[in-house]
Amino acid sequence: MAKRKVHRRARKILGEEPVALVWCEIHRPIPVPPKEVHRAAGKGRLKPGHHWLLYVGAVVFFFVVVPMILIDKIGKKIDQRLSGREPHRQTPRPGSRSGPQRFTGDRGSAGDRVDDPAGGVFDGDWNLTAGRLLLRWYGHSPNPKRLVMLAHDRICVAASPRRRLSPTRADDFRPVAEFPLDAARIEGEAGQPRGFATFRIRFADGSWVQVGRLGEPEDADHFLRTVSAGA
């Protein structure tokens, strides 16, 4: 559960004790908006930032691991040539297929992706409230986590400026969007499996955005029980 200082910070922002709060993330990549829409919104970040250790790991992989793999393969080729041996090749059996094979996976899933270009992240209309919110979702913080706080009269979305944070201890978050209850509501079901729970923020114009990866099980359970009871 979030520490007392997190609740103290939330109380300072809301001006009252939060009814419920939970850290969450956009559970799938944000769809790529049309270029003109992205440009009009200021061409903000559409992906979360990465920690510097990730870049260090990528450099080590490409400049250390990859050369070692190539050197090992070249060494094996040289050994084979010097020993006069050709690598063993398996003779295809009669009737067996050779060459590239076509993928014959589930075509239904591909069709679903075509029918739902927004990927279940939001309603798909970039001009409505949910689309505009997504266009600036990562503009306030490179960290993917957002704190959704419920007050008696409004919903507040906050973010921490830090690249890394602990959901139980982060107390430097700042509000990035607020919506009165006549402009937005939370839709969620209690009792969802932990690790797979999601909820939607639905706006008065009919748009919605879905989030998941809910932080701290106790906070998530209380949050979902609260919104389901008020539905």
Rank of each mutant, 00 (worst) to 15 (best):
P92F: 03
S141A: 13
I155Q: 03
I13C: 05
A231L: 07
S160V: 03
H51Y: 06
V65E: 09
H140Q: 10
R136V: 15
V56L: 14
G139F: 04
V157E: 02
R202N: 10
H152F: 02
G230V: 07
H88T: 10
F203E: 02
W126P: 00
E25P: 00
D115Q: 11
A158G: 02
P34M: 02
P193W: 03
I69W: 14
V6D: 02
R200T: 05
R164D: 04
A20Y: 06
S228F: 08
D125S: 05
A197L: 10
Q80A: 15
P92L: 13
R162C: 12
W137F: 10
V59Y: 07
A170R: 07
K145A: 06
G99F: 04
K77I: 14
F62C: 11
R162L: 11
A184T: 06
P217T: 11
P100K: 07
Y55K: 14
G57A: 13
L70T: 12
E218N: 11
R146D: 01
P94S: 13
G124Y: 07
E189D: 14
P94I: 14
E36G: 10
G44M: 08
R93G: 09
R28M: 04
V148Q: 08
L46N: 11
R8K: 13
R107A: 11
R213M: 05
Q192P: 06
E216C: 14
P31T: 04
D125Q: 04
V121K: 02
R97H: 15
A231D: 09
P142E: 05
D221H: 07
G75P: 07
F122S: 00
L134W: 03
P144F: 06
K77A: 15
V176N: 01
A158R: 06
I74L: 08
I30A: 07
V176P: 01
G84T: 06
P33W: 06
H140D: 09
D106Q: 13
E25W: 00
G111Q: 12
D72N: 15
E189V: 10
N143R: 01
W126N: 01
T129W: 00
D171T: 08
P180Q: 03
K5P: 00
P87H: 07
G44H: 14
E16K: 11
Q192I: 08
H38C: 05
G44I: 01
S98C: 12
I26L: 09
D112G: 05
